[in-house]
């Protein structure tokens, strides 16, 4: 099985079945639209600015849709035979396990912290303190 015959077969058999400029342009337009959508969460017009979780869920949904479009159409997975499941599903599951395995030690690392770490780690109160100092500085500058 040479590369030549493989690609030739591919070109001869599949080209009429899938691909085509129109389809790629459509996917491109969809990707651009979806990127604008996730960027929309950054704009002042986004209605859930005080609930970041809504934006996170929305952006993850948008990203997964974009990833699916790229994988299915640009990477031609839509037209591939069943081997695609053998490679992608175990890898995706492994990827998920890798993340979940980090949760107890890393994700929950701040539930119980040593005294030493507590001394040095940032706290939300520090951000407030910095903002307070900044506001005081601004009003002082305005007074002068």
């Amino acid at each position: 099985m040479s590369n030549h015959s493989a690609s030739h077969d591919h070109a001869a058999v599949h080209d009429h079945a899938h691909g085509g400029l129109g389809k790629y342009i459509a996917v491109f337009a969809a990707l651009c639209f979806l990127t604008t959508m996730s960027f929309f969460t950054y704009s002042p017009a986004w209605p859930w600015r005080d609930q970041p979780q809504v934006g996170w869920a929305f952006m993850m949904a948008v990203s997964c849709t974009k990833a699916l479009l790229v994988v299915l159409f640009f990477m031609h997975v839509w037209w591939e035979a069943n081997w695609k499941y053998v490679l992608t599903i175990p890898a995706a599951m492994m990827a998920l396990f890798l993340v979940i395995m980090l949760v107890p030690d890393i994700g929950m690392r701040n539930r119980m912290v040593s005294q030493e770490r507590a001394i040095h780690m940032a706290r939300p109160a520090d951000v407030l303190l910095l903002q307070k100092a900044q506001e005081a500085g601004h009003s002082e500058a305005a007074a002068h």
């Binding site: 890393i106 690392r109 701040n110 780690m121 706290r123 520090d126």
Partner: peptide
């Protein structure tokens, strides 16, 4: 995991 486990 690091980001959502962080205090700040």
């Amino acid at each position: 995991v690091l980001r959502f486990g962080a205090a700040v």
